[in-house]
Design a protein around this nucleic acid. Sequence first.
DNA 1: AGCTTAATGCAAATGCGTATCATATTCATC
DNA 2: GATGAATATGATACGCATTTGCATTAAGCT
Lengths: 139, 139
Amino acid sequence: MAAENQELRNAGLKVTLPRIKILQILESADPGSRHMSAEDVYRALLQSGEDVGLATVYRVLTQFETAGIVTRHNFETGHSMFEIAKDDHHDHMVCLSSGEVIEFSDSLIEERQRQIAQEHGFELIDHSLVLYVRKSSDD
Amino acid sequence: MAAENQELRNAGLKVTLPRIKILQILESADPGSRHMSAEDVYRALLQSGEDVGLATVYRVLTQFETAGIVTRHNFETGHSMFEIAKDDHHDHMVCLSSGEVIEFSDSLIEERQRQIAQEHGFELIDHSLVLYVRKSSDD
DNA sequence: AGCTTAATGCAAATGCGTATCATATTCATC
DNA sequence: GATGAATATGATACGCATTTGCATTAAGCT
Ligand SMILES: [Mn+2]
Ligand SMILES: [Mn+2]
Ligand SMILES: [Zn+2]
Ligand SMILES: [Zn+2]
């Protein structure tokens, strides 16, 4: 309950109602909907009966990102998706049929990326890998 | 000269001046500037003395993409980048210092991606891999 | 050349995200 | 617990890349 409060304080953010609520929504999202757009979060807030402005949702999500509480993804959907940051890095697989987002992580690929950057005289700072897939049975 | 005309016809597109010009600009771009935004193409047109509307540039680029003549990339720069489609697939490395775009292709990563999708019961349809890097010497 | 249809250019409309600013809230201090 | 300075919020205006509506123009077939 006070867990969110502490997390916000640790991030150097004032404990406000919108921030607590947004954090709760992101943390309580089930695996299938871990990845939410600002609109998604906004709608969830409204359904919880909270009266928070969309501008605040955007602001808070950006603050959370800066604080390392959430991670922002730019899938090809045109709008940013956010998820509670995990301790370990992972990449994503998006099903073109259902839209579901599956997380995975492959050390081989991770390592190879570092090598490739190095071979070109660069240092790997970040990367974005998204697999677009379809159920094997589908036609 | 008539090469562009044929390419447009093959794509099922009417041969118009804007389309020819845009195709020429993309095809004649040197390796360092293969990847252009709609604005980039628009500016290049103006400098060639052509009077083409920006809306037309956007429309034509989208048509070229549909026809498989160009490939669209959504790097984290905020705007789409286009390049003449090559026969072989490749991925990109974007230098965060200079903005330069380097192409690479790694069969190991390509194969691993296919495996990962399969292991999750999916078929790999497409993927997007972008490495964000910095010159190794930079601080 | 004439005609039908698609393409173009301009301007207005979108849509996601950010900036502004007056008001409300937090929280350190009394 | 009240007070007040600093910060956060919400409504709205704005910015920017891209799209769309529509009157005009150009392509291409006869
Ligand atoms: Mn994730
Ligand atoms: Mn390329
Ligand atoms: Zn990764
Ligand atoms: Zn690839």
